[in-house]
Write a protein that binds this DNA or RNA. Sequence first.
DNA 1: CGTCGGCTTGAAGAACATCAAGTTTAGTGG
DNA 2: CCACTAAACTTGATGTTCTTCAAGCCGACG
Lengths: 244, 244
Amino acid sequence: MNRTENSPLARKLAAFVALSPDEFAALKQLHQRRRTFVAGRDMVHQGQSDQAAYILESGWVCSYKIMSDGARQIVDFQIPGDFLGLRSVLLQTSDHSIEPITDIQAVEVLVDDLLGAFAQTPRLAAAILWAASRDEAMVVEHLVGVGRRDANARMAHFLLELGARLALVGMGGKEGYACPLTQYHLADALGLSAVHVNRVLRQLREDGLVTFRDGQVTIHDYDRLVTLAEFDPAYLDQTGPILK
Amino acid sequence: MNRTENSPLARKLAAFVALSPDEFAALKQLHQRRRTFVAGRDMVHQGQSDQAAYILESGWVCSYKIMSDGARQIVDFQIPGDFLGLRSVLLQTSDHSIEPITDIQAVEVLVDDLLGAFAQTPRLAAAILWAASRDEAMVVEHLVGVGRRDANARMAHFLLELGARLALVGMGGKEGYACPLTQYHLADALGLSAVHVNRVLRQLREDGLVTFRDGQVTIHDYDRLVTLAEFDPAYLDQTGPILK
DNA sequence: CGTCGGCTTGAAGAACATCAAGTTTAGTGG
DNA sequence: CCACTAAACTTGATGTTCTTCAAGCCGACG
């Protein structure tokens, strides 16, 4: 096993498509310019144009939009193995801002290289389109949560989804995971106030479901949490490679 | 001008990429099996697998998810020129249901044909990826609305976005458009109760902003509506073809 | 050792949901 | 043409969820 096979993206894609050495090589080709960004300073600002796309190697990032009154809606968090700004590249101009939550490392991906890799290895293309579709499915699920779940179920669902995603890149399991988010991040993601997030977390903790504290999510009762959240990981869990 | 150039999809893509005759031909290749579906009966059901993808030719459709308590969240509406079920095809199993709101006509698209067209005409591929990115941007904007806009602004934004989309396929303008949706559809899309939707519509009407009645949206004061909604059509309006 | 970000808790208020009861409109069969 | 029905819409009264405002706590870090 070489380094590329160990990259979080390769690990994620391998859960979907059994990649050949050639395809691993094509994927490796994309990993050229490695860059570092520090926590808290926006990498991309809403309205900027001609952005690059990245693959996140380490650290956590969030994508968000700001309203004129200062309210913020976090659309998604990115963890290692996720793409950053793929949509911005295609739309020419970024419709959202991107902020590293921790210090991060990311590799820059040139659109031409990506399209080149598509032409070269169609199955890799399928795998990447799968990953993009999965990202979109997560946004959809997020929308459903904000639109139709009450605050408790919304939080439960969020914490479970995050856990499932982290598990896919080997960073968590059903017992919990390390998580650098603050309660303000949760509030901005879930469409709640920070005050209410605090109360919701207290209730989930007192109900013996899950504890969010000191950068650590500890799941006490996975099954009851799943029931509360109506969590169905179908769109995240490929049980095995679909394309042989 | 041939029939394909007049298809709503061709019209929409042409706003992004100036398509050559070859590319129009490739696009036409995709328009093979035409099918009809009647209003109200689901075309695809949440959890079904191995679905086809479609391009909508005429009529309106909605994509939604149902919660166990019967609450429904409409994720998006599709109008002529839009894709249906593209994500379901890539994820193998549909994460949402699709229901025709009116009787519709749609052409079935085979994934292999689509990927074939991609290999044949890369610029068409770019155009279709642009369309998919635009759809995703709409879902993101929808999420922001449900998470951070109050009911009035949310409704205003929704009606404006729909108008802008319809304008792109020649079905509406800044004065208004025909719209077969019921107040229940609006409620399910906006994460509100039908009762509240009714009150919001009354207020927007009494404020002289917009009237939603008898299948017709009439915009009385476009500029004030845009201000209320903080509507920025950047992600919908390509001012002209980006790729020459 | 002061300050600042993050967390916690209480009290009051606003936005929206729910419940209940009409009205209006389009369609349908007699 | 009319009676009947069902879906869509409308409105008022009441209740819940979540927000906002206010205050204080704790630990990290200069």
